[in-house]
Simulated assay, not measured.
Amino acid sequence: MFAQDLKVQLNINIGEEVKLKCRNNTCISGNHCRELLSNDKKAFLKLCDGKRQGWNSQLKKENRLHHCEFYSPHPVFYWQPMKVEWLASDPKVGQFIEFASREELHALWDHAPKAFRSQVVGTNKTTIKSDVRTGTQSWFPDNHWITKRLSLRIQNLINMNYETSDDWQIGSYGIGGHYSVHHDYFEKDYAQSQWFHKRGYHNRLATFMIYLADVELGGYTAFPRMNIFVKPVMGNAIFWTNLHSDGEGQNITLHGGCPVLLGNKKIANKWIYYGGQMLRFPCLDAFRKP
């Protein structure tokens, strides 16, 4: 009954997000927007139950993956390869097993600045408190030994320059805490007015999320358009790309944080920007504009 009550509340919150997106005209039309996000909402809630919808996915068949390997993309991993489960190839989605040690996770959590109530971007391009995202967060810059260590590990692992990235976002979600479906990349109108765009960073190319604690029940990271969900396990991390190689958003990366039903979900997010990756993430011929 408790879990059902949380779903009802999540239903309401996602409904509010549908209205927001429709008001911002990010869909073809109001009716199309409501229908599209309603289907996403239903798929998201199913994934939050730990149930995939067969192969009901917008991923192209050739981009669907589900295989594991020992991964050594850089010499630092030769002596101890990283264990990875690849879930999709375009956009690239992978889960890294035992990415960080318990000591590193405790250090990241203990040294992070004081947390505050989570915020989202409002209709007037300001940050506001919202029921769409319930939890606390803080921002931890790359000037501490633990953040530098983990950022460099990410750079070597996914071959992306962390110097053009956000500070670490440390988040916590208690029972009932969730984040409704959303994209990590920003809409063009908003992005063009922000500091990162003025510096030439452009937009969020990739997301790297570390799970700092186990969650007994719920709290999955779910991608309704790709029919993918990942269970939060302490020390594991999930990585995905948000943009095509030409810098345009990958609409299929819509995702959300499922309600925590039992436990406390703790995460650390690192968003890496498109700017600064020209030698590491070149524009493919298929996306080149004439």
Rank of each mutant, 00 (worst) to 15 (best):
Q58V: 05
Q58F: 03
Q58R: 12
L59P: 05
L59W: 00
K60C: 10
K60A: 13
K60G: 10
K61N: 07
K61A: 04
K61P: 00
N63C: 07
N63D: 11
N63I: 03
N63T: 01
R64C: 03
R64I: 12
R64E: 14
R64N: 02
L65I: 06
L65A: 12
L65C: 08
L65F: 00
H66P: 04
H66W: 10
H67Y: 10
C68T: 10
C68S: 12
E69M: 02
F70I: 08
F70S: 14
Y71P: 03
S72L: 06
S72Q: 13
H74Q: 11
H74D: 15
V76H: 10
F77W: 10
F77V: 14
F77N: 09
F77M: 11
Y78H: 14
W79M: 15
W79K: 15
W79E: 15
W79D: 15
W79P: 01
Q80G: 10
M82S: 00
M82Y: 03
V84E: 06
V84Q: 00
E85M: 07
W86E: 06
W86R: 00
W86F: 02
W86A: 01
W86H: 07
W86S: 03
L87P: 02
A88Q: 08
A88K: 01
S89P: 06
S89Q: 07
P91N: 06
P91T: 05
P91W: 08
K92M: 10
V93F: 04
V93K: 00
V93P: 02
G94N: 05
G94M: 03
G94A: 15
Q95N: 11
Q95H: 02
Q95A: 07
Q95E: 05
Q95Y: 08
F96N: 05
I97E: 07
I97C: 11
E98G: 06
E98T: 01
E98D: 14
F99W: 09
A100Y: 02
A100G: 04
S101P: 11
S101R: 04
R102I: 12
R102S: 13
R102E: 15
E103K: 08
E103Q: 13
E103L: 12
E103V: 12
E104N: 12
E104S: 07
L105H: 12
L105F: 05
H106F: 08
H106D: 15
H106I: 13
H106N: 15
H106G: 04
A107H: 09
A107C: 04
A107I: 04
L108A: 08
L108F: 06
L108E: 06
W109M: 14
W109G: 03
D110A: 14
D110T: 13
H111F: 09
H111V: 12
A112T: 09
A112G: 06
P113Q: 03
P113W: 03
K114Y: 08
A115H: 09
A115Q: 13
A115K: 10
A115F: 01
A115L: 14
F116V: 15
